[in-house]
Design a binder for these strands. Structure first.
Length: 164
DNA sequence: GAGTTTGAAACT
DNA sequence: CAGTTTCAAACTC
C-alpha cells in the first residue's frame, strides 16, 4: 500500500465513504467529524469562493449559511463555473501529497500543511528548520484515541469489499 | 475584534 | 521553471 493520496480516511473502527474530494489538508474540524455534513465556514472576500483559497471549495463543498463570504460563486447558481474549477482541481490534485514549504513556523503551527494534517514532514517537503514532531508515520494521524490513515480511494474500496 | 503573520495558491 | 503577488486562515494582542 502506498498511502500517498489523501483521498480516503480509514480509521480503526469503521469505513466511511468520502463525500467530498479530499484535497490537500484535512483540517482538525474535519478529522473530528470525518465525512459528516460539517459545514465549513469560509470568509472569502475576493476569490468568489472559486479558488483554492476557499476552504469550502477546496474540500468540494458548497458554501453554506454559516459562511460569511462575499460575492460567493460556490453555490448551485454558478454550477457550471464552479464545477469547471473543481474538475481542474481534481486533475491537479489527483496525485497530491501532503508537503510543505514552511519558512518560519518550524512546521509547528497550523500554517504547516503537514502539521495541520497530523503527519510528519517528508523528504517531499522543502521546509526550513523543521520541528514537526508528529510521532505517527507518514499520512497517519491521531485525534483523541482514534487513529487515522490516509489511503487512496481505490485501496479503500478494496478494503471495503474485503470486509463484507 | 483588529491587526499581524504565514505559506499555499495564483500569477507573471 | 523561479520569483512575486494575492489571498484567507492562523495567530497574536
Amino acid at each position: 500500500m502506498k498511502p500517498n493520496h489523501c483521498d480516503t480516511i480509514f480509521n480503526d473502527d469503521q469505513f466511511q465513504t468520502p463525500t467530498r474530494q479530499q484535497k490537500r489538508v484535512i483540517t482538525e474540524t474535519t478529522i473530528k467529524k470525518p465525512f459528516q455534513q460539517k459545514q465549513r465556514q469560509c470568509t472569502c472576500k475576493k476569490s468568489q469562493c472559486l479558488k483554492m483559497y476557499c476552504d469550502c471549495l477546496a474540500f468540494g463543498e458548497y458554501c453554506g449559511s454559516e459562511c460569511s463570504c462575499q460575492n460567493c460563486h460556490n453555490d448551485d447558481k454558478h454550477l457550471e463555473q464552479r464545477n469547471k474549477v473543481l474538475e481542474q482541481m481534481v486533475e491537479k490534485n489527483s496525485s497530491a501529497q501532503i508537503k510543505c514549504n514552511c519558512r518560519k513556523s518550524n512546521c509547528q503551527k497550523k500554517y504547516c500543511e503537514c502539521y495541520n494534517a497530523g503527519v510528519k514532514c517528508s523528504e517531499l517537503c522543502k521546509c526550513d528548520d523543521c520541528k514537526n514532531s508528529v510521532k505517527l508515520g507518514y499520512n497517519q494521524f491521531q485525534i483523541g484515541n482514534q487513529k487515522f490513515i490516509l489511503i487512496p480511494v481505490q485501496t479503500f474500496e478494496q478494503l471495503k469489499s474485503q470486509q463484507k
